[in-house]
Amino acid sequence: MEGYVITIGITILIYMLMAGGLALQYGFTGLSNFGLVGFVAIGAYTSSILAIKGVPIPLSLIAATGLATLCAYPIGIIALRLGGNYLAIVTLGFSEAVRMTLQTEEWLTRGMHGLTKIPRLFSGWVEPSRIDLCILLLLLAINIIAFLAFRKLVKSPFGRAIEAIRDNETAARALGKDTAQFKTRSLMLGAACAGLAGGLQAHYLTFISPEQYVPLVTFYVWIALVLGGADTMKGVIVGTCILVGFLEGSRFIGDFVGGISEVKLASVRIWMIGMALICVVLYRPQGLFGRSIVRN
């Protein structure tokens, strides 16, 4: 039981890091990034490949974060000249392109077989039974640092500028802001979070394959933000906890409610998330803990 709680905790914290990145992009800058999982995949594969080749995990995680960040740059240049909806499509296309590349470039990624024997975080440092707990604590520390940095960032003049761009980009440009540059930076910072989350997840799971990085992951993070609220840290945290807690916890519905087959249960879980989403959007469009912001 304790092990299971730790597993859920780790999953929540990995998703929370991704959600933090997306919150910066969407909640504070207004960028609809539907390709978040692409950056997660880049982070995961970069860190795994390097670590398998013998690079120490901390260094390979830094490289993973760096590469994910760099990959956001060209996307920014191409897509940020286009309006909001185009960015959603371009980024979704990007994440699928990443996944296809991972599938086909077997010399590097071993294709559909996936990468196995990825070095585990803390292995050899602490006794095997305690590794999960240590990973949990590490993730907790990283999340706390990331969220403190976010808080500082969104309260800074930079945060004020990206919020201004979210509220009215034309006006921001009329005031001399180079909005494309701000948006690119925001996209890159969010991608850094996603890349780091991907790397950490890979070193926790020790096995990754392209089918882990389907758009559904992006949508889960979006659901978390819609539930909790995309423009407050509290919203991000609560939204992720509710989503992952529910996804994991609802496995046990069958134990309490009789007469539901496994197959039906899987559908019921998705149905419940859908209903929750509809209710939130109808009755609390800003999310449970979002500010009631005005969208143009």
Partner: peptide, 10 residues
């Protein structure tokens, strides 16, 4: 602009 373009949430 003709129509005010305030940053509504600031």
């Amino acid at each position: 602009f003709q129509v005010p373009r305030e940053f509504g949430n600031l």
